[in-house]
């Protein structure tokens, strides 16, 4: 009958009215009592004791808790992670960047690391105002020194501040993404939850033991 298709359509929308939503809420969301107590890791009664205001809000479903969207460990985030002691200053990243936004200035280093002379980095500027986060610099890095970051909250008021300088890279929290780093994926590492302090953890080889080092660099020379 004419109009039957329309009525079927009305019921499809009605089904979705009572069904679940697919909205991802960020940076916080409002929840009821059960979820709020789960968030504060308490039972509902002790929630009232410790957070009375949140407790009362939770009764009407208005308690505010932090919420973060699910994120893959491979997510190519904004702030780059750079491990200085892995970097030799070869500037492969700068060379392979499709947009040429990485600027590296080096001078021959004082310190001699075991695997040959490395360069000291004077300037390591990444202009993420023009970066398209393709990750080819990370792919090109032969020593696993440069990594994609895992965040996306780098909103900045001035255009100049979009350039990541070498100091910023040095001091930044190291939460590298596992993009193009299969060795980190194997250890089921989550950039959201874990930080990486030791630069050996991000390399694609095992950290050599002292005996191996002596054998390689002292005995065999």
């Amino acid at each position: 009958m004419f109009g039957f298709g329309l009525i079927k359509g009305l019921f499809v929308t009605l089904k979705n009215l009572v069904g679940p939503t697919f909205t991802v809420q960020y940076p916080n969301k409002r929840v009821g009592l059960i979820k709020a107590s789960k968030y504060y890791n308490k039972n509902p009664f002790s929630l009232f004791k410790s957070h009375p205001l949140e407790g009362f809000k939770a009764i009407v479903g208005q308690a505010v808790i932090k919420e973060f969207p699910d994120q893959s460990p491979r997510f190519r985030g904004q702030e780059f992670n750079w491990f200085e002691d892995r970097c030799t200053g070869c500037a492969s990243c700068a060379k392979y960047c499709p947009l040429g936004i990485i600027e590296i200035v080096t001078h021959p280093g004082e310190k001699n690391i075991q695997e040959g002379t490395s360069y000291d980095i004077d300037v390591f500027d990444i202009d993420i105002g023009r970066c398209m986060f393709c990750g080819i610099c990370v792919e090109a890095c032969p020593f696993d020194a440069l990594h994609m970051g895992s965040g996306f909250e780098r909103a900045i008021e001035k255009r100049e501040n979009l350039v990541i300088s070498v100091d910023e890279l040095r001091s930044a929290e190291k939460r590298p993404s596992t993009w193009f780093r299969p060795q980190m994926e194997k250890s089921s590492y989550e950039p959201r939850n874990e930080k990486i302090e030791d630069s050996h953890d991000v390399g694609r080889h095992e950290k050599p033991s002292k005996e191996e080092l002596t054998k390689r660099w002292v005995n065999e020379r």
């Binding site: 994120q71 893959s72 491979r74 997510f75 190519r76 398209m132 986060f133 393709c134 990750g135 080819i136 994609m148 993404s177 993009w179």
Partner: peptide, 12 residues
């Protein structure tokens, strides 16, 4: 796609 390659639209 984000699981596969870390990006949603500009995959590469």
């Amino acid at each position: 796609f984000e699981m596969l390659c870390g990006a949603r639209i500009t995959n590469s």
